[in-house]
């Protein structure tokens, strides 16, 4: 059992989301999508409430959350940076761009910077292969990124 420390207001919002899907266990993935888009991530206590509401085991919810790469249990930074590691970006130097981000931000993939501003992740193909290598900061897409552009991109958000 997780000790639930969420505010009442948040608990009500999660319950509402569950209710909007008729509290059906089969809708778990849709519920998680909606919850994550509301809260940004899916910490253990949120999963606990969802499990209770949908009447499925917490292990089942945790199993699903950890299975799909779209779901995260760690809060993302204010400006989440994603580097595309699809094949097209890889052969056009995506890895070098990633190395540069790691070096500049001093964090590795899956981490969030100490000040909570930036987080770093890799994604598999945004389908913008014509612009490879591609970096996304939030919703904004940067195409044909070279390692020497990394500093400027980060500075835009500092």
């Amino acid at each position: 059992m997780v000790n639930i420390k969420l505010s009442d207001d948040k608990i009500i919002r999660i319950k509402d989301i569950c209710k909007s899907f008729n509290n059906e266990g089969g809708e778990l993935i849709n519920v998680l999508h909606k919850t994550q888009s509301t809260f940004g991530y899916l910490p253990a206590e949120v999963q606990e409430i969802i499990a209770r509401e949908l009447n499925v085991s917490l292990a089942h919810v945790y199993g699903v959350v950890t299975f799909y790469s779209f779901f995260t249990m760690i809060p993302k930074g204010e400006f989440p940076i994603s580097i595309c590691m699809g094949t097209a970006c890889y052969v056009r130097g995506g890895e070098k761009v990633l190395d540069e981000f790691k070096r500049e931000l001093k964090i590795t993939v899956g981490q969030t910077s100490d000040d909570g501003r930036f987080s770093l992740s890799c994604l598999r193909c945004v389908g913008a292969c014509g612009l490879a290598p591609v970096v996304m900061v939030g919703e904004k897409v940067y195409g044909r990124v070279a390692p020497d552009m990394v500093k400027d991109i980060i500075n835009e958000y500092k």
């Binding site: 849709n30 299975f67 799909y68 790469s69």
Partner: peptide, 25 residues
């Protein structure tokens, strides 16, 4: 519509069906 959540294996028919049922794919 049913949404995937980023799992390559869900392109496989049976995995896709399990994912639509709200389970691990």
């Amino acid at each position: 519509l049913r949404y995937g959540a980023g799992a390559f294996v869900c392109g496989e028919e049976t995995a896709l069906i399990h994912s639509m049922e709200g389970m691990r794919g």
